[in-house]
Design a protein around this nucleic acid. Structure first.
Ligand SMILES: [Zn+2]
Ligand SMILES: [Zn+2]
Ligand SMILES: [Zn+2]
Ligand SMILES: [Zn+2]
Lengths: 147, 147
DNA sequence: ATCAAATTGAGAATGGTTCTCATTTACTAT
DNA sequence: ATAGTAAATGAGAACCATTCTCAATTTGAT
């Protein structure tokens, strides 16, 4: 199985997973929210609310923001800060598999990366009185074009 | 030397360091910007632009934002995303010593933490085409009051 | 088909940040 | 000290992202 096929399967799994969690939470399966979920499912990295809104015809802006809030509360997407003015959102795989980001503070370029040792170090962190659920790591610096 | 005295010395060092970098950059030593620097120097963790503005009499809001931008460009403060709507800023010690954050996604409580193994893992990450300068780690979860 | 509750979209309102511009301030060279 | 120049400032307007309001619609259960 090639990489594209793997991703497609994962997108579909997430999208179904998301719909299921939505129902379990006692929420309805509405068309506009489904559109938001489908669009998020197709993204490999973070997108902003306004980007989603721009892509979605027939879905009000408020609905996009509401869907994002619900998905975030259900742990289906995660908000990430990539340096700009707006926040980005990307899906959280049920498997826990995820990436982090390295961003160029000059041009804003963002690259995802994965690092097993980093994950291990993070999972070893325990804080009394806190139950850790997710984490976010961002490396800041300058890319080749901007150094 | 007790902890309070250590912090006080570090604040002063940072504040002088910041003034020096400002001058080196060809910027003037103005009174309003110095007030912003002094206020930032006294904070142990992130504060927002609006919080700074509220504390500072006789300093215009635009000046606060401008000072933040300059200090950030000079690598004297770092922007951190602590979950809310506004961004936080905290000073970067010349020594490199710093902390990261654990935040409760329910009530918004923020606690700083330090972890040597985490720092090691981060410093081992290298990405071709990127010169990493700073990093940010945020753990998300729920605090005791909100679990 | 009926009903209650959830959901929606349009637009207003808010919050945070940046911009504009006339005036003031800080440094440099006389 | 004085004058000249560029940086810096504050007030407010403008701007962008996000949240709120509310009447109308859609959904899922009965
Ligand atoms: Zn990503
Ligand atoms: Zn991770
Ligand atoms: Zn902090
Ligand atoms: Zn660190």
């Amino acid at each position: 199985m090639n990489e594209t096929a793997t991703r497609r399967r994962s997108e579909q799994a997430w999208s179904e997973h998301a719909e299921a969690r939505i129902s379990e939470a006692g929420l309805k399966r509405s068309v506009p929210r489904r559109k938001v979920i489908e669009l998020l499912a197709g993204q490999d990295c973070a997108v902003t609310a306004l980007q989603l809104d721009a892509e979605l015809d027939g879905v009000g802006r408020a609905t996009v923001y509401r869907a994002i809030e619900q998905l975030e509360d259900l742990g289906l997407i995660q908000r990430v800060d990539l340096g700009g003015s707006a926040h980005g959102y990307e899906r959280l795989e049920p498997s826990g598999h995820h990436h982090h980001h390295i961003v160029c503070d000059d041009c804003g370029k963002v690259e995802p990366f994965e690092d097993e040792a980093l994950e291990d170090a993070i999972h070893d962190i325990h804080r009394k009185g806190f139950k850790v659920e997710t984490h976010e790591v961002t490396l800041h610096g300058h890319c080749q074009d901007c150094h």
